[in-house]
């Protein structure tokens, strides 16, 4: 993945998570992957189009998903969730949207033009994601609620 794209994604993930959750966020080591990878349980996906093609995937366990959604909801004086319901899904979708949105804004300021597609949520057990001939950058984020893996696969249009 183009070097210039890395920082905006890492930074905005860090910023947004610290901001909305009001918790300490630790970034793990970045690494690259291209084989089919198992998903943790719940994944939000945002597509990218424009000068580039690709997608950003936010992968976490159900438990982490519930805790994060609850933390976000209670901070806005709403009720916490106990399961992955519509409210939880909507909240996590919004989180994905916020992070990707900020990253894209940063990239726009650097002169790269991307568009986002509306986010989608996948839930289920034993799922794997694979996109052949796409190398993904993994940004692991450690939160008190658990771990979110941000999986960014972007390539230049050729």
């Amino acid at each position: 993945m183009r070097v210039e794209y890395i920082n905006p994604f890492v930074e905005s993930a860090y910023n947004i998570l610290t901001e909305v959750l009001n918790e300490e966020v630790k970034r793990g080591d970045l690494y690259l992957k291209n084989t089919a990878m198992p998903m943790l349980g719940i994944a939000a996906i945002v597509g990218l189009a424009g000068d580039v093609e690709g997608r950003v995937l936010f992968d976490m366990s159900n438990d982490t998903g519930i805790k994060i959604a609850s933390a976000m909801l209670t901070s806005m004086d709403m009720e916490a969730v106990t399961e992955i319901n519509d409210m939880a899904r909507a909240t996590l979708t919004e989180l994905a949207n916020m992070i990707t949105g900020q990253a894209v804004t940063k990239l726009h300021n650097l002169g790269f033009k991307f568009d986002l597609t509306p986010p989608a949520i996948f839930t289920g057990d034993n799922m794997t994601v694979s996109d052949p001939s796409f190398e993904a950058l993994i940004v692991p984020m450690e939160l008190p609620m658990g771990r979110i893996e941000i999986n960014v696969a972007v390539r230049e249009r050729t």
């Binding site: 993945m1 183009r2 070097v3 210039e4 890395i6 970045l30 690259l32 992957k33 291209n34 052949p132 001939s133 796409f134 190398e135 950058l137 390539r155 230049e156 050729t158």
Partner: peptide, 15 residues
């Protein structure tokens, strides 16, 4: 030049 954080072992769509 396009600099990429990339592992050549991973398949990627190069021309």
């Amino acid at each position: 030049i396009l600099f990429e954080f990339s592992d050549m072992k991973n398949a990627s769509a190069l021309p």
